[in-house]
Design a protein around this nucleic acid. Sequence first.
DNA 1: TATGAATGAGGCTTCATTCAT
DNA 2: TATGAATGAAGCCTCATTCAT
Lengths: 197, 197, 197, 197
Amino acid sequence: MSPLNKQQLEIIRDERATQIKQASLKVFARYGYSGTKTSMIASEAGISEGLIYRYFSSKEELFNTLIQELLEDASRELENLHQLQGSPYEQIKAVTENMLDEANRNAFILIQTTRMDEDIPQKATENLKKYSADTLIDLLLPIFVKGQESGEFYEEDPCRLASWYFSIVNSICMQEWGKEEYGMPSVEVLMRILKKN
Amino acid sequence: MSPLNKQQLEIIRDERATQIKQASLKVFARYGYSGTKTSMIASEAGISEGLIYRYFSSKEELFNTLIQELLEDASRELENLHQLQGSPYEQIKAVTENMLDEANRNAFILIQTTRMDEDIPQKATENLKKYSADTLIDLLLPIFVKGQESGEFYEEDPCRLASWYFSIVNSICMQEWGKEEYGMPSVEVLMRILKKN
Amino acid sequence: MSPLNKQQLEIIRDERATQIKQASLKVFARYGYSGTKTSMIASEAGISEGLIYRYFSSKEELFNTLIQELLEDASRELENLHQLQGSPYEQIKAVTENMLDEANRNAFILIQTTRMDEDIPQKATENLKKYSADTLIDLLLPIFVKGQESGEFYEEDPCRLASWYFSIVNSICMQEWGKEEYGMPSVEVLMRILKKN
Amino acid sequence: MSPLNKQQLEIIRDERATQIKQASLKVFARYGYSGTKTSMIASEAGISEGLIYRYFSSKEELFNTLIQELLEDASRELENLHQLQGSPYEQIKAVTENMLDEANRNAFILIQTTRMDEDIPQKATENLKKYSADTLIDLLLPIFVKGQESGEFYEEDPCRLASWYFSIVNSICMQEWGKEEYGMPSVEVLMRILKKN
DNA sequence: TATGAATGAGGCTTCATTCAT
DNA sequence: TATGAATGAAGCCTCATTCAT
C-alpha cells in the first residue's frame, strides 16, 4: 500500500482524537475524574493504552480538552437561541428541553461533576468559569424580561430569576433518572417556577 | 502516673472516631470517593494517616460507615416530621428549609455524589438503596395529599409531584452555592412547583 | 515498526512469569513468606516492583502458585520412580539422592518452611496437605516391603519405617549445609536406618 | 501501700522480663521472626504492647536475648552430660531423648528457624555461631570414641559421625510431629545410624 | 501509527516504637 | 510501672506514563 499523504493522516488523527474524546466523555461522566483509569478510556475507545498519549499529552490534558470543547459546543449552541420562535414561555421551554435532552446528558453531567469535584485539573476549572452559566443567562435575559413585561413570568429581578431557574435545570440534568420511578420532572412543572398561574 | 481508665479511653476512642468521620465527610463530599486520599482525611482531621486504621479497617469501611450513619441520621430526623405544625405549605417549607440548611449540606452532597459515582464501595450503594428518597416521600405523602385536598397544591399524582419536588430540592442541595451571584434559589421560588397561584 | 505479534507477546509473558517465580523461590526459601519483601523479589528478578503485579495479583498469589507448581513438579517426578532399577536398597538410595540434590534444595526448603510457618496463606497450606509426603510414601511402599522380604531392610511396620525415613531425609534437606564442617550426612549413613547390617 | 523497695522492684522486673521472653519464645517459634508482631507477644504475655519496651529496647533485642539465653541454657545443660551413666549407647540415647523432649521443642525450633531464616538480626546469627552444634559435639566426642573402641558404634571419623548424627536429630526436632501419622522417629531407629548391628 | 510490557511515583495499609496519662 | 493511643517509616499495590518493538 502506498503511504498515506499528509491530509489523509491528519484525518486519521482527527478521527482517533474524536474517538478518544467520546470514549472518555462517557467514562469520565460515569466514574469521575479520579475514578477513571486511562485503561478504561482505552478499552472504551477500543484502542491500546499507550495510544492515548499520541493524541493527548496526559489524562489531565485530555480532560481539559474535553471540558473546553464541551463548553465551546454549548456556547455555540446558545448563540442560535436568539432565533428562537414563539412566546418567551415557548422559547425558555425549548432551551430547557434542549438542556435536558438525553443526547447532551453526558456533557452536562461531566461539566457539573467538574464544578463540584475539586480533584480536577485547575485549567478545567478556569475554563468552567469563563464559560459559566452567566453566558447562558446573559443571552437569555432579554427573553425573561419580555416574559415579565407580557405578564407571563413572575415579576422579580430577572437576573436572579434566570440564574435560579437555570441552576435548577442544571441540577436536574445531573441526576441519574433512569432508575427513578417517575423519571425526570416534566418541563411544564419546572416552568411553574417562572410562570404566573 | 496511673493509666487512663476504661471509660476515659472509650471517650477518647469515640471522640477520635467522630473526628475522623467529620473530617472525612468534609473531604469525601468535596473530592469524591476516589479523589479523596487517606492523607487528606488525616490532614483534615489533624492526625496521622496510620491512626485512621485504629478506628476503621479501611478507607472503604470508613466510607460505608459514614454513609450508613448519615442515612440513619437523616432517617431519624424524618421520623420527627409527623409532628410538624401548620398548613401543608408550611410543613413542606419547613422540610425543604431543613434539607437546604448549611449544616446538612455535606451529608446531602456526599449521599448524592455517592448515588452518581459508580466507583464506590458496593455496600454503600446498597445502603443508599435501602434508605433511599422513597422513605422521605412515603412519610410526606399525606401532607401532599392534604395540600391538594385543600386546594393549596397542584392536582396531579401526589407521588409523582412529591418525587419530582424532592428530586429538585435534592439536586439543588448538591450545588456549590457560595460563589454564585444569587446564591441558592429561595424556598418560596421552589415551592411554586407545588403551590397553585 | 509493527508491534509484536500475539505469539511473541505470550513468550515474553511466560518468560517473565518464570523469571519472577524463580526469583521468588530463591527469596522465599531464604527469608520465609513474611520475611520476603516484594522489593526483594523484584530486585532478585531484576525488574521493577510494579511489574510483579502484571503477572501475579498479589504476593500471596505468587506464593501460592509457586508452592503449587513445586508440588506438582515433585509429584510428577515421583511418578517416574516406578521404573527405577536395582535392588530395593539401590532404589531408595536413588530416591534419597534425588531429594538431597542441590538442584531441588530451594523447593524442598520452601515447602518445608511453609509446613512450619503458620503465617502463610491458607491456600498454600491446603495444597501442601493434598500433595503431602504420604503420596511419596504410598508410591515407595512396595520397595520397602520387597526390601524387608529380601532381608535387606529392618523388619517393622513398613509404613512407619518409610514415613520415618523420609521425615528424616526431608528434615535434612532443609538445613543449610554449606557452612557445616562435614556437610550433609552421606546417603549411606542415612540408610543405616533401613538396612540390616 | 508502702512503695516497694529496690529489691522487690528488681524481682518484679525479672518476672516480667521472663514472662515476656517465654511468651515471645512461643510466638517466635510458631510464626518466625518477621511473622511475629509485637502485639502477638504482648497478647500472649497478657501485657500491653508498650510494656515490652520497658524491658527490651526493641523486638530485635528481645529476639537476640532470647536466642542467647536459650543457647546458654542448652550449653549449661550439656555440661552435665559428663556425669551421664551407662554405656556410650545409653548415654547418647539419653542426650537424644533430651533433645527430642517436648519441653525443649520450642527452643530447638526457634534456634533452628533462626539458623535458616536470614531475615533475622545479625547478632542472633553471631550468637548461633558461637554456641553452635560444635560445642555439643566437642563435649560428646569422648563418648563416641569410647563407643567405637568398645565396638558398639560404627568405625569412622568420630567427629563426622557425631556431627552428622546431631544434625539429623536437630532436623527432626524441628518438625511438626503432632499431625504426622507415625509421629517422630523413635530414638532406637535413629541410633541405628551409630550402632553396629 | 499502534501495541502492551515496563517503570516508578504515589496511594492504602501495617506495625514497631514512642508518648501522654 | 503500666496502658493503649498516636506516630511514621516501610511494605504492598495501582496506575499514569514511557518505551521497545
